[in-house]
């Protein structure tokens, strides 16, 4: 491990400042453990999420484009831990090449020029960066031995692959590898890349219960004791809706939904108390205690 600090631009997005505060905490904890400095994008704005790209093609480009513009000055690679934010930033980056008309309208409206976009990393890419892997390789303080975790990738990290160019759209393995590297047992399951219902979380609760319930059920039936996620929306849906889904399906789930960074941070020795695991709606501490990890 080199002592030299490595810096990344950091775009937490709205969720990591509200519903996914604990995700923010764990990402920063991993970064700290790895000696990585995260520099928050100055005065960032919302990426527009599904609502923009679902209804307004200009805003769908312009909102993430402003984030890229704000990040430009630092000249650093951007880490976007929220999969939805990551997807929107990557799409904007791709559209900036393909749609000069959108770029022109954007620059005219905002009165500034958009430069070339930097590299954008999702959280799994970040966890595979040399600094982090070196830290993990240098020795785990608390290997997650015997913890059977289903890695859940969801949609936007791997799809559309022409935009994200990340892992495999149907059978991704990057999170599996990270889980294995911190001593956990990755549990392959068919729901790996199924959709949790995402932004329908508020407007169509019935559908999200159905979709998220199926995913949790598949993970459970595959023998998982927990699910790891890399997206605040996935976490909220799998975590918050599994109770209703379990009741509907007549099964008991009780599967903790961890952010992948929480598990890595734990393994790197960060105290569970510091990670805010109590914020999860499904009890996340009991399993860790049972496995003597907390």
């Amino acid at each position: 491990m080199s002592g030299q600090s490595v810096r990344y631009s950091y775009y937490p997005g709205c969720s990591l400042h509200s519903t996914a505060r604990e995700y923010n905490v764990s990402v920063r904890a991993v970064a700290q453990a790895a000696g990585v400095e995260l520099v928050e994008v100055p005065d960032w704005n919302c990426c527009g999420a599904t609502s923009a790209h679902a209804t307004d093609p200009f805003l769908a480009f312009a909102l993430p484009a402003r984030v890229l513009l704000q990040a430009e000055e630092s000249g650093l690679d951007i880490l976007a831990p929220c999969a939805a934010c990551y997807g929107r930033l990557m799409t904007a980056k791709e559209e900036a090449h393909r749609r000069p008309d959108l770029v022109a309208r954007f620059e005219k409206a905002i009165g500034r020029k958009l430069g070339p976009a930097p590299r954008i990393l999702n959280v799994l890419e970040f966890l595979a960066e040399p600094k982090v892997t070196e830290t993990i390789a240098a020795g785990l303080k608390r290997p997650l031995t015997d913890l059977k975790v289903a890695p859940y990738y969801g949609c936007l990290l791997v799809r559309p692959s022409k935009v994200t160019h990340f892992d495999d759209a149907e059978r991704p393995t990057s999170m599996d590898k990270i889980l294995a590297s911190v001593g956990a047992t990755p549990v392959d399951f068919p729901g790996k890349t199924e959709c949790c219902g995402a932004s329908l979380g508020i407007s169509r609760v019935d559908l999200v219960v159905e979709l998220s319930g199926r995913i949790v059920q598949q993970a459970k039936h595959a023998g998982a004791e927990a699910i790891a996620v890399a997206c605040p929306l996935c976490q909220t849906n799998l975590d918050g809706r599994q109770g209703t889904a379990a009741a509907k399906l007549g099964e008991a789930f009780g599967l903790p939904i961890y952010y992948i960074t929480e598990l890595v941070a734990l393994a790197l020795g960060v105290a569970p108390g510091r990670l805010g695991l109590g914020k999860h709606l499904t009890n996340s501490l009991a399993l860790l205690r049972q496995k003597k990890l907390a």
Binding site: C14, S15, H17, S18, T19, W44, N45, C46, G48, A49, T50, S51, A52, A54, T55, D56, L59, L63, S199, L200, I202, S203, R204
Partner: peptide
């Protein structure tokens, strides 16, 4: 409902620049 959600979401962004749950 989906329509109202998207509208409400963008209203928030318009107002604050960020989403406020």
């Amino acid at each position: 409902n989906v329509g109202v959600f998207h509208r409400s979401f963008l209203n928030g962004v318009k107002r604050f620049g960020r989403s406020h749950e």
